[in-house]
Design a protein around this nucleic acid. Structure first.
Lengths: 231, 231
DNA sequence: CCATGTGAAAACTTTCACAGCG
DNA sequence: CGCTGTGAAAGTTTTCACATGG
């Protein structure tokens, strides 16, 4: 996926870091910190201060020389970059299983201007009920409801086997973007952004990092032992 | 985070792609596809065939010239890279809320050799009960249980405010890696890998991609109109 | 003739170095 | 004097081009 901001190309890694800066700024605001330097933010994120300044520069975010960035102002500006303000992003969830229910119940997403308006499922026992305040519809009604409610984002928490069909339905309904938790790569028209979050992949990745870290620790240990032997 | 495989440096993007190849190979295996070309895999992932071959080459994975890669063999080899085989990765979950419960209940993670052995919470009503077959302990017992059960991975599904304390506890207990779902950046010794998955950040990122895609579509439209006007 | 495997080129990202401002 | 802002260098990743083998 290629993303732009104004006329600049933005890498997905940069977008991720921007979202993380926002998270840190929320924390700093909570702590009543009024200004923050690129160095401090860099230390929090585990990146270099130059990286932070470069990122901000890309989006035209400026600080004060000598003191740093104003926390509240920076936070507001980054929120704007992420589309906060105009109106709330209406979301729906497809698949009212335990993960779907957990996502809808979690209020943290609402903090950033997202709002669940509908849930869909195939289980007749769930259809017609509510999750919190969100009504559960039949998947057959997906298109109608999305169009009627002007839902922008479809969150897929369905089994891998239904992923393809549900993605097609969402696209036909005119969804603007898809957040896919189903463990399958889905194909949609290039005009509709898809972000896939595969939780089992995160476990695999962590396992790889652990092995890599422990391997390096062992090698370092061996190095130390070899050196002390040589003396 | 810097990761290695043998003596080669591996970027986190490469690790992500490897995990996604594994997901696709599982699908292909399910479909009884016996061989796959770099071109086919590339089309599934939305990357170039050269990228696929370069990735495989990095890990010493080879195919057959003229036909491609053997699906089952490739899948087994990538599983090995991710640490499958030797023994199962024992996991625990800290925070038995709805997300924690959903993660424990989901069986997909077990498919890759991960296994939940314990859950921890501070709610006295939950302590002593079970989630599925997994016992819920008090957070006070975290160190003892992790050491006793030789738990490798700690999954944090706690509120942001407890993230720091829980991360410290896990590290003291000798955890080998942390998967953090709490919306806060956590600081741990460099020897312990942390992978943070912030679900609200995924929404923000998607919102950014949507805006970017729609902006580009508008510009393209304007271009077309300007061109047809000029004729 | 097909698709892999791989040096080398191109593109991109990060770091460096330092000028510039509060 | 401290910290930002930014061109340019260094480093990394991706793409290209093509030799190689079934």
């Amino acid at each position: 996926m290629k993303t732009t901001y104004g006329k600049k190309y933005i890498s997905m890694a940069t977008v991720s870091r921007m979202a993380t800066y926002l998270q840190c700024l929320t924390y700093l605001e909570h702590q009543h910190t009024s200004t923050v330097s690129s160095h401090e933010l860099a230390a929090l994120l585990g990146v270099t201060p130059e990286q932070v300044r470069q990122d901000f520069s890309t989006f035209g975010l400026v600080g004060k020389r000598g003191s740093g960035y104003d926390v509240v102002r920076l936070k507001t500006e980054i929120e704007l970059i992420f589309g906060r303000g105009v109106d709330r992003w209406k979301c729906c969830i497809v698949g009212a299983g335990s993960l779907g229910t957990a996502l809808v119940s979690s209020h943290m997403v609402q903090k950033w201007g997202f709002k669940y308006a509908a849930a869909f499922d195939t289980d007749p026992r769930k259809i017609g009920t509510h999750i919190g305040r969100i009504p559960v519809y039949a998947v057959e009604d997906l298109k109608d409801v999305i169009r009627r409610e002007h839902i922008a984002i479809g969150v897929m928490t369905v089994p891998a086997s239904s992923a393809r069909k549900v993605a097609d339905l969402l696209c036909e309904a005119g969804i603007r973007g898809i957040l896919n938790f189903a463990p399958r790569v889905i194909k949609v028209p290039a005009s509709i952004p898809v972000l896939s979050v595969d939780l089992s992949q995160e476990f695999l990745k962590l396992a790889f990092y652990i092995q890599s870290a422990e391997q390096r620790a062992r090698e370092q240990q061996a190095q130390i032992e070899a050196t002390s032997h040589g003396e």
